[in-house]
Design a protein around this nucleic acid. Structure first.
Lengths: 337, 337
DNA sequence: TTGTAGGCGTTATCAG
DNA sequence: CTGATAACGCCTACAA
């Protein structure tokens, strides 16, 4: 079996015209008025559909010096926040005739590999989400003519548009809220990253504000799988001096905490308060509904627009999009105490 | 700002050699023995790293007639099953020096667009998961020299390797199990697709086996969002003649049903039985733990291997990988009755 | 209104 | 051992 991708030349032969004519018909727009007679136009289109012709991307991109593709780089799947983001970006990109592919990094190694791919022009633009890329690495991408938008609170770089959130401030408020309500043994589940973790920083700062000491045994690295999370929390709740509140880096972990608490016979919020992060829709239908911290808006259209805008106009000044996060009070923290 | 992607030519100039020499150094392998003196070799590598040269993908692919890329096509994100799949495939592909990108289809429209992309050689191989592509469309891909592996129970085509599951049989067993336990008003949540839905077929067949009539009001199209699912189930449970069992097409929906039941004051499994599908890890930590139907194994390495194998050897006979699904009995169906 | 030709950056086949 | 050089398939300025 031979791969028989028809070429422009074959279409031209089939239609009995030159390749340039075919190209004109297909690409339409060209400088000034390149009109094609309706007759040849039809013949060309006929030939195209007969052969099932479709232009070769590599050739087109080589010639045009652009891929008409965007790449969203995610650390991993399974995060609702990312899923919404991908949907919105894909929708907006589509309107602007860009295709979207997703690359998964996961490990630092894989991250480097994706960086390579991008350097080699996998796409014209990148939306890098929460990765561990350094400013230097990102700037190298920009230097090779790739538009970069970064969703990250810690990293930034020249020529890179950034989407930042006020999440750390919201985390701080959340912890303070727990402390105000009288909770004292607050467990904090953080996510390991290369840089600093906003959750942890907010946690420490809040304890400081209330002049409370840090208990290291309450600072817990979030396990990978949900089941492992459940087991870790269960263990935590069964120990001698159990925490009276749990602050987590994700709503999924928080919901898991709700399950673990129920199974351990603890009442939420009276025996145990829980605060999540991310404000996923599930949080509204747990019982009690989940008090959480999350973005005030989940519309990522503007992020996509910003990326595409830079693509069209690479020399414009760098921009920062600030997204408000807020404490969303529902039912998993007690009001009295 | 100009995009300054250095080219082979520039590297050659910098190193004071011809572009051919640079190519030899970088690609190493070539017909017979093309040795390069260590001296020039070093000079070339020096120049490469000085300029930060990295070969242009489009040009390379155009010349080589391959992209060294695989594409996983998913209907949407947010499905744990897909996420595991992606991880496994990415891991295996990486070993074989293939890159992996993910494309999202969602709508039928988007599906066509991705098909276009693939036709234009977005990738050398496709793993199409649960889409609505017709055999014809897929065969067209194969005809243009793209390796296709399809995970689908209903579709197949010439030259296309297929991964099928025995899920419909397992669904049938699940419904029969409910009926055997004495449940009679079983609600079935199905997922709309273009073709037939295995869940629905299994449901009807099981009712048939037990000589029971089909109650259309118990056949329910699964809403999009989890919150909408919750509301739909709540409504269902509060109606006059409520169902005494729920069979769902996904564990997430089943877990949502657990929540809705709890909030409606119903005991699972005594007042309401629930069976999910997919066997996600969360099912083990709900209370009661979720009875479900799912794949006996969640290792997708062999799927990736099959795809890569076909890439390397396109003319081999078509293969079918059959993956066993089974009923996993836990705590959401009553034993007595 | 249509055709010709040159080149995008690589690779690979030839000679030198 | 190294250097020209011809494709790969497409686009487009320029010529006819």
């Amino acid at each position: 079996m031979v791969s028989t991708q028809p070429t422009l030349r074959e279409v031209a032969k089939q239609a009995g015209v030159s390749i340039a004519t075919v190209s004109y018909v297909l690409n339409g727009r060209t400088s000034s008025k390149k009109t094609i007679s309706e007759a040849t136009r039809q013949r060309v289109l006929q030939a195209v559909s007969e052969l099932g012709y479709t232009p070769n991307q590599s050739a087109r991109h080589l010639r045009r010096q652009q891929t008409e593709r965007l790449c969203i780089v995610l650390p991993r799947l399974g995060v609702p926040y990312y899923e919404i983001l991908c949907q919105h970006v894909a929708a907006v990109a589509e309107q602007h005739h860009y295709n979207v592919v997703i690359s998964l990094t996961g490990t630092r190694e894989k991250e480097q590999e994706v960086l390579q791919q991008l350097q080699r022009r996998l796409a014209d633009g990148v939306l890098a989400v929460h990765g561990d890329w350094t400013a230097e690495e990102l700037e190298r991408l920009v230097a090779s003519g790739i538009a970069v938008t970064l969703m990250h609170n810690e990293t930034q770089g020249r020529g890179i548009d950034i989407v930042q959130t006020t999440e750390e401030e919201a985390f701080y408020q959340a912890i303070c809220y727990l402390l105000q309500q009288g909770y004292r043994r607050i467990a904090c589940f953080y996510v390991e990253r290369f840089g600093r973790d906003g959750r942890l920083e907010a946690y420490k700062r809040a304890l400081n504000t209330f002049h409370l000491p840090l208990d290291e045994t309450l600072v817990i690295h979030t396990p990978e799988s949900r089941k492992a999370v459940y087991e870790r929390i269960t263990q935590l709740l069964r120990q001698e001096e159990r925490p009276d509140a749990i602050f987590t880096g994700s709503d999924n972990v928080a919901i898991t905490a709700l399950w673990a608490a129920q199974d351990a016979g603890l009442n939420v919020p009276d025996d145990l308060a829980v605060i999540g992060s991310g404000n996923i829709p599930e949080g509204e239908i747990t019982s009690p509904p989940l008090t959480t911290v999350g973005p005030a808006s989940l519309d990522f259209g503007d992020v996509a627009e910003m990326l595409i805008d830079r693509l069209r106009n690479p020399d414009q000044p760098q921009r920062i999009l600030l997204r408000e996060w807020e404490l969303i009070i529902r039912g998993t923290v007690s009001d009295k105490k």
